[in-house]
Amino acid sequence: MSVNMKCYDTTPCIRCFACMVGCSVENRLRLQRESHIGIEKSVQNRLTYLSHLSPQRREFGSFPNARQVTAFHHCNHCEDAPCLEICPVDAIIRRDGKEVVVVQETCIGCSSCLDACPFDVPVIKDGKSYKCHGCYDRVENGLKQSCVSACPSSAMFSGTKEEVLKEAYKRAKLYTEKTGKEHVVYGADEVNSTVGELRWVTIVPKEDLEAYKLDTNPKKLVMSAREAVKVVGSVGSVAIVAGSIGHLIYWLGKRKEKISKGEVEEK
């Protein structure tokens, strides 16, 4: 199966939030289907942890040049997903389409994924971790992701990596020519060594990367330090054990030599 990818194009987005409503509805339906929870129950509570796509509306500049952008906060299904690497119970898996998915039955809610994720995506609720699963069940059955299906303005589209990137680069080139502002496809190339490429890419004016909270170096320094110390600790521990064995052999030999010379008494 080829790599599945989603793209959010900031230019045609009309901020109707149909994608977010679609995501929330789809996950409630999953709850009814998989957990046998009646529709009344699943809509009585807000269940915000089931909205895997959340808007963060931000305003920039001052009148008359003020403008509003809506940054999307969601899982990027990283190529080198730190959450998947750190999960101690292997509850985070990668599907054939490369969607990074939390297996709820396996998750113990230790929050390791939350600490590792440089985008602060996973939500821990009632001892389980929740995040976007790329609607892998829909995709594997020939449907589009719920957010993509809901989008009325083609601001969200998906497909195989090749299809999505081809369309994304075409749009970015068009916007650059029409507006004079350089547009980029964030996440198409390796973002950094922590996350690699992203499976959720965003077409955005380069100057607005920060406004849309698209981090060009997503990294948690403190977690990187933890990993570095683990390597140092492993090498150090082996060196200490080897040194201790070496010292014991040397010490016993030296003591034997001293005993044979009569310098110390054998006990």
Partner: peptide
Amino acid sequence: TYARAAHAISFIIFGM
């Protein structure tokens, strides 16, 4: 997150 890193780093030093 800082606590998790501090817990791991201090344990590694402690362990050695």
